[in-house]
């Protein structure tokens, strides 16, 4: 399924945060959305996911919903958003149990996503017993359990330390290798974007406008290969030079909230 954005704008009261944003995330494509802090990345994601009411422009999905999909637009949150009183399996079940799946199908789905995310041994653990990385694996497992048409990932690795982030990126790549889901991935981390995305959408500082859209010309599962490292580093530097000036200005702006 594709996501099409046309001329999307948004303002919190008098404060415009998005202005004339248009781009498309293609079928099975991972688009990273980067930009300085406060540029409206997360706002855009919430608009796409239907958690914020649209104010201007058009946001639409195109294409067919995959078989077995229960929740076409599915989020993975920065703070995991796990129910602390439910076990790992119970948190995944929350996404399923209000659908008429049948007990067997529900349990099969839970078992399969826990397996996929390496959580099988932790099915009965409570979130407080898990490390940050494991908690986000639960968040990811919950998202893929509903077989989403579009994954909306809101800085999913930002709350994790550098090593854990590295491990989770490898997990994500492995998961995507099995099932290519259209993904909109918000991050402020350039390395993540260069490592995971097929396409990087760079937003300007507030109000966020599209500054550039850059394709990453290396397949996701080959980016660790030595022959590509130079190219990717160059891309990273190029993106940084695009953002740096914006980030400096944004950093000096007073908070308006």
């Amino acid at each position: 399924m594709q996501v099409v954005l046309e001329d999307v704008g948004y303002a919190y009261g008098d404060l415009p945060v998005l202005d004339g944003v248009s781009f498309t995330v293609g079928e099975g494509e991972t688009a990273a959305l980067i930009g300085p802090s406060g540029c409206g990345k997360s706002t855009l994601l919430n608009l796409v996911g239907g958690l914020l009411e649209q104010q201007g422009g058009r946001i639409a999905t195109m294409g067919t919903v995959p078989a077995g999909c229960l929740n076409p637009l599915t989020f993975v949150f920065q703070d995991f958003a796990l129910l602390p009183w439910r076990s790992v399996a119970g948190n995944v079940a929350l996404a399923l149990e209000h659908h008429p799946l049948g007990r067997a199908e529900q349990e099969a789905r839970i078992a399969s996503v826990l397996q996929l995310c390496g959580l099988t041994d932790f099915a009965d653990a409570l979130p407080k017993q898990l490390s940050g990385g494991m908690r986000q694996r639960v968040g990811i497992a919950r998202a893929i359990a509903v077989k989403p048409a579009v994954m909306l990932m809101d800085e999913p690795l930002s709350a994790l330390d550098a090593q854990t982030r590295e491990l989770l990126m490898e997990d994500l790549i492995a998961i995507w290798a099995r099932e290519r889901t259209t993904t909109l991935y918000v991050t402020h981390n350039l390395s993540e974007a260069v490592r995971l995305a097929d396409k990087v959408v760079v937003l300007s500082r507030r109000p966020g406008r599209i500054k550039r859209i850059v394709s990453v010309p290396v397949p996701v599962n080959e980016r660790q290969k030595p022959e590509h490292i130079g190219l990717l580093q160059q891309l990273h530097d190029e993106l940084w030079s695009l953002i740096k000036a914006e980030a400096q200005v944004a950093d000096r702006e007073m908070q308006h909230v």
Partner: peptide, 16 residues
Amino acid sequence: RNLIRMAQSFGLSTRM
């Protein structure tokens, strides 16, 4: 609030 938004994003009804 984020737990409520999460539940909304997975399509749970108000009652649920």
